[in-house]
């Protein structure tokens, strides 16, 4: 039983390998980039615009407003990181309707990589906003006894991020694979639709949680609270 697309290896040289996760990630990256380039190549700056541009504007402004709702006062600063997280996870989920496709987010390696990025981005943005001293100090508040718990919280929530996304995506793909062997006709379609919904929800949860963590880290002189989704 194959649990992750990491196991599909197209090419390997020592530890360097080209598995399905990386290949499908590249495919998603290519699709997103080419699509964005094609649409933004003829951007209209006046009141008349194309449907595609309208769609992209809705997506981008939607992400910006969501980031602002989380509590980040300058949402455009975090749009690159959080928006790309959402778009990548969402695109990876949406592509599950394509036969033969394996979502890269169904690989624990990918989700771990994304969680690690969040793990690094939170202190990075926190230090940029508050300064190194203030950020470090936030770990020993209200007392220094809280320091180990804070560190454990940082690590555990990163782990939770990775495992939550992996579990959901992997289980979705797994359920469809199992159902296809049992009832190959109508029922897998319903489960695929459900899987699309789950994928979108996961993309939303992942990016919103990342936003919440960054907001908590960048909030000056605010008590640090670890939120779990």
């Amino acid at each position: 039983m194959r649990l992750t697309p990491d196991e599909i290896i197209f090419w390997q040289y020592g530890v360097v390998k080209l598995n399905a996760t990386i290949v499908f990630t590249w495919a998603i990256m290519l699709a997103l980039t080419v699509g964005a380039m094609l649409i933004t190549r003829t951007l209209s700056r006046d009141l008349k615009r194309t449907h595609w541009q309208n769609l992209l504007e809705i997506v981008v402004t939607g992400i910006v407003s969501q980031i602002a709702e989380v509590g980040l006062s300058q949402p455009r600063k975090y749009l690159g990181f959080l928006g790309t997280l959402f778009l990548f996870v969402a695109a990876a989920s949406l592509c599950t309707v394509i036969p033969g496709y394996e979502p890269p987010t169904g690989s624990l390696s990918t989700t771990t990589a994304l969680a690690l990025c969040v793990f690094v981005a939170v202190p990075f943005f926190g230090i940029v906003e508050q300064g190194l001293g203030a950020y470090i100090t936030s770990y020993i508040e209200p007392t220094f006894i809280m320091l180990p718990f804070n560190i454990i919280s940082e690590i555990s929530r990163t782990l939770a991020l990775a495992v939550r996304l992996f579990g959901n995506m992997m289980s979705g793909a797994m359920i469809i694979a199992i159902l296809l062997t049992i009832t190959p006709l109508v029922f897998p379609i319903i489960m695929t639709a459900l899987g699309l919904l789950t994928g979108m929800v996961q993309a939303y949860i992942f990016s919103i949680l990342a936003g919440v963590y960054i907001a908590a880290a960048t909030r000056v002189s605010a008590p640090k609270r670890a939120g779990e989704g």
Binding site: V15, K17, T25, R45, T84, S107, T110, T112
Partner: peptide, 28 residues
């Protein structure tokens, strides 16, 4: 190895998106 590759992929994607999606759209 895949984790590392995916981190790099993700960072590249962030840059690409910034370059080709967010910036032009926000400017418009």
């Amino acid at each position: 190895f895949t984790v590392g590759a995916q981190v790099i992929n993700f960072l590249i994607l962030v840059w690409l998106m910034k370059r080709f999606l967010y910036q032009p759209i926000l400017n418009a």
